[in-house]
Nucleic acid binder design. Sequence first.
DNA 1: TACGATTTGTACGTATGTATA
DNA 2: CTATACATACGTACAAATCGT
Lengths: 134, 134
Amino acid sequence: MIDLSADRAVFRQLADLLRDQIQSGELAPGRPLPSELRLAQEYGLSRTTVRQAIGQLRTEGLVTVDRPRGTFVRVPERAELVTLGRGERVSARMPTDAERRTYRLAEGVPVLVITATDGSTTVHPADRVQLTRP
Amino acid sequence: MIDLSADRAVFRQLADLLRDQIQSGELAPGRPLPSELRLAQEYGLSRTTVRQAIGQLRTEGLVTVDRPRGTFVRVPERAELVTLGRGERVSARMPTDAERRTYRLAEGVPVLVITATDGSTTVHPADRVQLTRP
DNA sequence: TACGATTTGTACGTATGTATA
DNA sequence: CTATACATACGTACAAATCGT
């Protein structure tokens, strides 16, 4: 399970375990993770360490927190298709805290930035938009 | 500066201050942030709280840590142009921990995922690739 | 309505390890 | 060799919101 003497940090090992359960479907989208206290007791860790592990999964966009109801496996959003115009360029980056609030972005969700030929940019939440080239 | 009685968490207020200094150019790319201990003393906070603030900026991709040299304002990478093929679709997401290691991605950097018409996908670091539609 | 239990968030502290200058 | 700086991991305490009784 978790090897205290391993090179890899304990909280990363716990994140790995939970990520595996999510990606294997053992923890399906919408399902709650065990509470932080539960995980701490289960694995004999401090709550701090458990929170580090869950924090890792949050930054990866794999789980969302509904405080104080619990932490849940993220349910994929329905993505809207946006057509890319001729000459437009696409990049992606993480939003700032302010952008996250204005776009109501969940944690661990990047934004797609489209730059038009005139230099103007538009920003799209990456979990709700997919770009197409017709 | 920092208002302990404010609604906004102290570590978020500190993150806001530092982010402002970065975005205004007061803290230019490549420049080091004050050390965690320094910031803690400067603002009368615990090192834990300072680390939370810096952690926020790390997830936003604004700073990188070169341990134990210090924490630095991220220097933008030179982006390679990748042409988008007909019918291809683009999305973005955060990499897992394993992907970050394989692609040598810095923290807070998303990946661009291109899905071809046959369903195959290719992954590009979002800080080194920009997509074009000719 | 009221209360208590649960759960996550914030903030503090300590100690130790590791790599760099 | 020493000092510095970030990483990990433990602990405590309290706040805030939700939920069931």
